[in-house]
Design a protein around this nucleic acid. Structure first.
Lengths: 241, 241
DNA sequence: CCAGTAAGGGTCATTACAACCCTAAGTCAG
DNA sequence: CTGACTTAGGGTTGTAATGACCCTTACTGG
């Protein structure tokens, strides 16, 4: 039998949802070190009524997958991500009680200030990514996988700037890496590895008023593909305004 | 508005399909070097009637995504992959004329002999991955991405054995790497890098009758996670018999 | 003006890797 | 039987990347 890609699913009871794991960094008040946090949404209907879940919702009929991820994320949390990438499609038959749901999950990064600005209400709360409660559906596994991808990708690509503003010091950039990778990095070695690559461009500005030696401000090299998705970057470029 | 993951898609016209890019190695008759090939299926209905497309089909109501990939692959090409991993979900609104289709695409590897055995008919043909005709839908982009992932993954993980049998010589393993990466590798350096890792276990068997010095046969170290998918390997383990 | 601290640069040992060379051990032609 | 040929497999060396550690520079607040 030869495939007919356009045929409908036999049983129309398969629903398609889009969810997003979105990370930001937060200073721990005790240690002063930054760690990875993410917002969760309290469910207000069965199944898993009252439990925490990833922000998301059904796919609209006229929107692309990434657009649906942005929209549902905005509707539920008010956040606008600085980086967004598809993570995985979860579709096990038994992953949700009741009608079957296939979830296409994205993962994203926001700047910390943007995360502060966004509304936080009764039904949206931030949690440390390493220490989550039991979530609805298979969302604990999803977060684990997203966190693993974030940590992996931080080592070989240049997504760290999505946590920072337009310009930043090398110390700020290093602190992002330290927060995600969970250990201290040598400032001098870090500087050399970054400056040795072409990821970053020095500006002629400096940060003063820090009661220390003024630090140079850097900007990301926009002529470089930060995402490192190979042929797919074509697809992503096309879609962004 | 808070998400309801289990709600149906507003417009029920979104169909969910599963396709697979499956690679095998073939000797080029002229040069004797191996290169990467994949089977394509000729479409026998609109849209793209008569053009080549990836093997696939609609998702069944009671099967997991990977199961659907294996099933549709078997039905259309007769192949049983030695390795299977999710690639990406393609869901742009305009990727298919007519009713909307979201395709969850897998990529896979088969042993070369298994690929030989599988039926090849009028409507299934093998093509070199580097030199494809214009395919149906966005399948050229999909194959490019799958090939990029294969080449990337070959460098840092241990999937090469999926092209080989139970036991193999280091020369065979090296030829797999050479075929995928497209360039010759130094035999001595390759040997050291493999033996230095714990990916491979030497058996006490040797290959004779090759009119050369007999080569040791190796076996893969099954106590190691070959796929390197982090937390997802949990999910995959569970599903395989 | 001095103490404290971050910015930023230098040095060195270790490691991974590529290039290149050599020897070992089979088969086949004669 | 023997030597040519070819692949198996090991050794040596230079280079590039990385981490550990030390030093100087430059600002601010007391």
């Amino acid at each position: 039998m030869v495939s007919g890609e356009a045929r409908k699913v036999d049983d129309a009871s398969v629903a398609l949802a889009v969810s997003t794991v979105i990370f930001a960094l937060r200073q721990d008040e005790a240690s002063g070190l930054a760690t990875v946090w993410l917002p969760l949404v309290r469910r207000i209907r069965e199944p898993f009524d009252g439990q925490w879940a990833l922000p998301g919702g059904p796919l609209g009929a006229a929107e692309d997958l990434a657009t649906a991820a942005r929209r549902t994320l905005g509707e539920t949390t008010g956040l606008t991500p600085g980086y967004l990438e598809q993570l995985y499609a979860f579709g096990d038959v038994d992953r949700s009680p009741g009608p079957r749901v296939v979830s296409i999950v994205y993962w994203a990064l926001v700047q910390s200030e943007e995360a502060q600005r966004a509304s936080v209400g009764e039904n949206v709360q931030w949690f440390p990514a390493d220490d989550l409660p039991a979530l609805a559906f298979d969302h604990n596994l999803i977060v684990d996988y997203a966190l693993w991808r974030l940590r992996n990708k931080m080592e070989y690509s240049r997504i760290a700037h999505a946590f920072l503003g337009e310009t930043f010091t090398l110390t700020q950039l290093r602190e992002v890496h330290e927060a995600v990778r969970g250990r201290a990095l040598d400032p001098a070695n870090f500087r050399r590895s970054i400056e040795g690559s072409d990821a970053v461009v020095a500006t002629d500005q400096r940060v003063t008023g820090t009661r220390h030696r003024p630090a140079r401000l850097f900007r990301y090299n926009t002529s470089i593909d930060l995402a490192d998705q190979g042929p797919l970057s074509r697809l992503n470029e096309r879609k962004e305004p």
